[in-house]
Amino acid sequence: MGMMLTIHPEKCTGCRNCELACALEHGGDFRIKASRIHVYAWEREAFSVPMMCQQCSDASCVTVCMPKAMHRNPATGLVEYDASKCIGCKMCVQACAFGNAAWDALTASILKCDTCDGDPACAKICPTGALEWTDDDLAVQARKKSFATKIKNAFSEAQS
């Protein structure tokens, strides 16, 4: 069993503290363009969603990486990036369907969530629990329950 970052968009306020914590953790300053996580906002609807590497089981970034800089850690199940092997071909950037691998021209390296070695700064700072570092086989249970609650409430309302 491993761990994963779970996104709860309904709890996201759009504050972008996750971007700030990620940038500071990895770069030592607040250059959030180089954050591994980004929050996208729909301003008319006042809604926002954080996006970062999903640690795919069948990861296209790993498949396309010729020098095997992008590889899976069998112990954690997470996709890791070894900068010393990277040749900067940016194939992972092209291959990721979610846009969660990016090229940083300033540092000439790939930006991808490394879960801060199993202690993600984004989840730690998130003020509302919209980002959660949780067991990968239990990650959906809280959400399932929250939707179950809505159904329960709908039933109670219908009966009253």
Binding site: C15, A46, P127
Partner: peptide, 15 residues
Amino acid sequence: RPRGCFACIISCGRG
């Protein structure tokens, strides 16, 4: 839902 400005931990904004 509550909304927050940049770097906010208070979330007084009202969607």
